[in-house]
């Protein structure tokens, strides 16, 4: 009888597709299609420099997206990552440029700020049980205000590449001879691998997924759900710190009051990549692919004459499709 039940519940998918993850495969195809499409339509798009710029603009979003994937998997969310990223970049940069501290200190402080925010978000969500949307909406506003206060509402220009202090910019884009190499992509790949392992092969990952699937059943199994739930937000904060560094390294200056809305790009990326808004399911590789769809659209559309407004509309449509896939999948498996 169990066999029958099983048959009734399972879908008729190719086992290989099932293993790689149907949605991730689709997203990969979308990326290839988009890339081919833009390349054919526009000669300028085919340039190495374009690819470089796609990557440049993807790092900070990718880091935020990896982090927020953990929050999403618990069934929560983190809206504070956008303004948070800018805020930590401002604080770190402030220490370097205004307080005369070494760049290394600035970088570490940027990360620490992210972790602290993760602890705060985790406390609000996991211990005080404030709904994640509300809790992180509040910390989003706090982060925005805090960045402005620390810098006295002034933009912070992290040291440019040419200066002695500008070495940190080479973390993401290194120039060897006359060619620039997207070194940042290497870090992204390494972090993707590490976090994929953390999510799938370690206790924190297992428990974070379990919390998102059924928090109460997990708690009743004697698992310290508060601790692991909180950890998801701390991971999110840490990666927002990474994002803050990538942001500072990519852009000339970090301006206070900005960053709102960027969290949505990251969340969109994660969801396009197959992370469920209901929690309990998600993949880091999927998130990376999802972010690439976003940055491909962001960079590619101007090349075929469609400006930012169109990019918004198309991204919106892509997101609806991605969420629809999730909804349909949930409905199927719910039967």
């Amino acid at each position: 009888m169990a066999g029958k039940v099983k048959n009734a519940g399972s879908r008729t998918t190719n086992p290989l597709v099932e293993k790689i993850g149907g949605q991730r495969l689709v997203v990969l195809l979308v990326i290839i299609t988009l890339f081919s499409f833009f390349s054919i339509k526009s000669e300028a798009f085919r340039q190495y420099s374009t690819i470089l710029s796609i990557l440049d603009y993807s790092y900070y979003i990718t880091f935020m997206a990896i982090g927020v994937t953990f929050a999403l998997i618990t069934g929560g969310n983190d809206l504070s990552i956008g303004t948070g990223m800018v805020c930590y970049g401002l604080i770190g940069g402030f220490l370097i440029t205004k307080m005369g501290m070494p760049v290394g200190v600035g970088l570490v402080v940027t990360l620490l700020c992210g972790i602290l925010m993760g602890v705060l978000n985790g406390t609000l969500v996991a211990i005080m049980e404030i709904p994640p949307f509300i809790a992180t909406l509040c910390t989003m506003m706090i982060a925005r205000g805090l960045g402005s206060i620390v810098t006295g509402s002034m933009s912070i220009t992290w040291p440019p590449l040419a200066t002695e202090q500008g070495w940190f910019r080479s973390i993401f884009k290194i120039t060897i001879g006359d060619t620039k190499y997207p070194l940042g992509f290497l870090w992204v790949i390494i972090l993707i691998i590490i976090m994929t392992i953390v999510l799938n092969k370690t206790r924190p990952g297992r428990y974070i997924i379990a919390i998102g699937s059924n928090k109460e059943a997990t708690r009743l199994s004697g698992v310290n759900v508060v601790k692991w739930h909180m950890l998801a937000y701390i991971i999110c904060g840490l990666f927002t710190g990474f994002a803050g560094i990538a942001y500072a390294a990519t852009f000339q200056a970090v301006a206070p009051g900005t960053g709102a809305g960027l969290e949505l790009d990251a969340i969109c990326g994660a969801i396009i990549g197959g992370t469920s808004m209901k929690g309990g399911a998600g993949s880091i590789v999927g998130t990376l692919l999802g972010v690439f769809v976003m940055s491909m659209l962001k960079t590619g559309l101007p090349y075929i004459g469609l400006q930012a407004n169109w990019q918004q509309i198309i991204t919106g449509i892509v997101l609806i499709v991605a969420v629809l896939i999730d909804v349909i999948r949930t409905k199927k498996s719910g039967k």
Partner: peptide, 9 residues
């Protein structure tokens, strides 16, 4: 289903 198992796992 609510308190005993994690059905999706």
């Amino acid at each position: 289903k609510r308190f005993g198992i994690v059905v999706g796992k």
